[in-house]
Design a protein around this nucleic acid. Sequence first.
DNA 1: CCCGGAACCTGAAGGC
DNA 2: TGCCTTCAGGTTCCGG
Length: 273
Amino acid sequence: MPELPEVETVKNELLPYVIGRKITKVTLLWEGIVKEPSAEEFRSRLVGQAITGIARRGKYLPFSLSSGDALIIHLKMTGSLLIKQNSAEPPEYTRAVLYLDNDTALCFRDPRKFGVMRLVNDKDTIIGKLGPEPLEAGFTPQLLAQILAKRKTPMKALLCEQHLIAGIGSMYADEALFATGIHPLRTGESLTQREIESLHRAIRRILWAAIENKGASVNTYYRPDGTKGTAHNQFKVAHRFKQPCFVCGTPIERIKVRNRGSYFCPRCQPLST
DNA sequence: CCCGGAACCTGAAGGC
DNA sequence: TGCCTTCAGGTTCCGG
């Protein structure tokens, strides 16, 4: 599942293939992947434009174009952006192909059709509502304390809220909570100052380590060259249902928090002391 | 504004 | 073998 480290890896590894390249043709194999504008307008406004940059904001990938428009891609759960030879057949489940003027094709593969592309004048209407970037300097323990203060929502849900903190999803929320010994159902307001500082450090350390490992390939996440990341090899609790905790040996449990699977160690992450 | 739950979507895996 | 259920979860929308 692409979260901040996976999306950051996709951006970094896509950049050398696409920067400065002109889009020569757009093929939509499933038009529903384009949220706005219409499929027809999307194609005509994109063809002929050069890609001048790619950024990452939360889990969004804004591509800047020579026209001044922005192509904003969200991979959601199962999307991947793959670089192929433009003469090659696109991989199975490819929903859209951007052909570039260097003999390559950028394929948007997405088995579950959750992924989204938008072509917009102003990218801030989409990404402007996001919370702070957890790896930037402005994300301080004080800011995290402010975000969690007086909130009765479970910690697992709070960490996944994009308008509070941008880029964290289910896997890395589980990992950060385990590293801090916090049960996923603890409320935001129940955390002590000490726990908040520890959580702040854990979030940054875990996200940085996952970027160094090129993301986690739990299911269908692939890097642009088709290879997988290795960050999931570092997971302590995420997707380790019934397996022994590396710290105390207790079987990892799974509960639903806001309809999301949440993995945790019942002994290392007690709900009450 | 705060909070919780459903819907979207489909392949893989497990149970009977 | 084959059918049925569950699981995966980022985002958006709707309700109280």
